[in-house]
Design a protein around this nucleic acid. Structure first.
Lengths: 137, 137
DNA sequence: TTTTTAAATGATAACTATTATCTTTGCATA
DNA sequence: TATGCAAAGATAATAGTTATCATTTAAAAA
């Protein structure tokens, strides 16, 4: 919700600007973990004067302030994820589609496993699954 | 081993060239899933005339022929992984270090779990864990 | 409400990683 | 030795992103 997001900006001491709201809104509306370019294209419809540099700067600010996460991919194009709760990703083997995947039971199984089987010389902070495959159409 | 790699090139109908051998050798020697730039820098020592374009082309050819994998990261710089057997990655939360992680028991637990709990409208081909945390020094 | 000021935006240029193009080179085979 | 073709090298081009800096704006202070 936008009100929540405004509060989050304020908590972080960030100014609430129309550009920032439009960018966050674009990411939510677009879905599929958009690229900077996707976001620019979408925003240009309603907000034709926005600068590309601003979009990059805002995305960077959001990531630094944990309002957005970068998505790991095998491409040199950055993608962004607005859902901050712990979740995994389904990657389409053939297309650029990336979907969110949540499964608390599985998370528990994995974290229990690592409780019993520590990795030598490594403290785990976070575990994410990247599940590659094909969506059924 | 280099002999194995030569055979792999030949199996794929790719010519065995000094550049290709040097690039593969660099990736193995460098470890830590190097970038194209890391590879160029390393090779320049013994092989000062190699062209950057060639390195990119060779990396691309290797990835296309499944002799190398791209590593998923949150950066717009590509990194490459020479180990083709199924494994996971440990990502350092603070540095660019990425280590390989293998655990057959865990793989079994996860694949058993997904046998019993299919994801709706999605056929899984591969599951990788990205484990973020800190290495103990 | 007006003023102040620090932060954010927009326009532009710069930069970096990567890819494309095109000529030349190096081998294998005829 | 000549031919064909994949691969390498040099260079230019492109794409995505970051930096710079003057201008504008949100929000705190007066």
């Amino acid at each position: 919700m936008n009100k929540d997001f405004i509060e989050k900006l304020q908590e972080k001491g960030l100014k609430v600007t129309p550009q920032r709201m439009a960018i966050f809104d674009a990411i939510i509306t677009l879905g599929n973990h958009p690229t900077a370019d996707d976001i620019v294209a979408f925003i240009k419809n309603n907000h034709p004067n926005i600068s590309v540099g601003t979009v990059y700067k805002v995305l960077h600010t959001f990531v630094e302030n944990n309002l957005l996460k970068k998505v790991k991919t095998e491409k040199d194009i950055m993608r962004y994820d607005p859902y901050l709760s712990h979740h995994h990703h389904l990657y389409c083997a053939d297309t650029e589609r990336i979907e969110d995947f949540e499964d608390e039971t599985l998370n528990k199984i994995i974290s229990d496993y690592f409780e019993k089987n520590k990795i030598a010389n490594f403290n785990i902070q976070d575990i994410k699954l990247q599940i590659t495959g094909k969506f059924q159409h």
